[in-house]
Design a protein around this nucleic acid. Structure first.
Lengths: 154, 154
DNA sequence: GTTTATCCAGATATATATATATGGATATTC
DNA sequence: GAATATCCATATATATATATCTGGATAAAC
């Protein structure tokens, strides 16, 4: 597994939010049903994203979550740094605690250029780009097409 | 985390084995102490590698584990297919069950070339190359330098 | 054949990630 | 201020990965 399920849910949810009009907060339960993801669990993830200053959260009636900045300002890297932890780009393939250019594992210099590709991709991919891709209709955000009620509403 | 701890232990152990003379079986407990890894857990991993036809195992006195083929024949990909499961190269970054060129997640075509780099690296990196790298002394296989007893013996 | 050293199989324990449940705080509407 | 709808915090449950334990099978050495 490349990233945790938590990270996957976070990215999916944020892409979905970026496809929605930013004038009104998005409800946790709407995101959850659209993505086919457990709502209480997603709520916890969204709350941590709010603590990480990626989202605004509003309580009470008409409450919900909003992107704190435009989708063009938020990259995959920012999200994964929150959900995977601040050192996730530094981890060694073989699991060594110290693995740098000075004290390296035998894979270090083979892995470095590939890792750079990954980091570049994460840093240059914004929510806006991904949201646009979804809006074309060619790309799927979730496995199951939302439940029947949602389809009727839409 | 990119790969599981199990995979990391497996790769480390096999690299170590490739640095050892192939005339005599290597003991699980020697590998474990050299790598600073829990021996009973490593034993289970080695047993599964033996079942996966990557290792020979011999019981009884003078028993132990041997690489089934030369280190030049064994790639990282072969190892990870056993420890991560046969579908680990096919998993979607966003966790979708169906994510192919036909039905793709919004990241699919951005991720594809990076994934190819990863797969290429895993397929072209052999145990022999990694073992040679370790034998130069410039690269570390484990965090902790083996215990004192081992250092004296060596 | 007894002793010793190893792998082997299965059960168990622990840690972590994932998921759920519950009661409460907050804000809007009327 | 009562009713409603939402987020929030904490505790709990479940699943999975990681790690350990125990008894046994096998084979070499003496």
């Amino acid at each position: 597994m490349l990233v945790s399920r938590t990270s996957q849910y976070a990215v999916q949810a944020l892409i979905y939010m970026a496809t929605q009009p930013s004038t009104v907060p998005v409800l946790n339960k709407d995101i959850a049903s659209r993505l086919g993801v457990p709502a209480p669990y997603l709520a916890k993830i969204l709350q941590s994203l709010a603590k990480g200053n990626l989202l605004f959260s509003f309580r009470g009636r008409l409450g919900g979550f909003c992107l704190r900045e435009g989708g063009d300002k938020i990259t995959l890297m920012q999200i994964l740094l929150l959900t995977e932890g601040p050192t996730f780009t530094q981890t060694c393939l073989l699991g060594l605690k110290k693995c740098s250019d000075e004290t390296a594992c035998p894979l270090h210099f083979r892995w470095a250029p590939v890792k750079k590709k990954i980091i570049d991709l994460l840093e240059e991919t914004t929510l806006e780009k991904l949201a646009k891709a979804v809006e074309t209709g060619k790309y799927r955000l979730a496995d199951v097409p939302g439940n029947l009620f949602d389809q009727i509403k839409a």
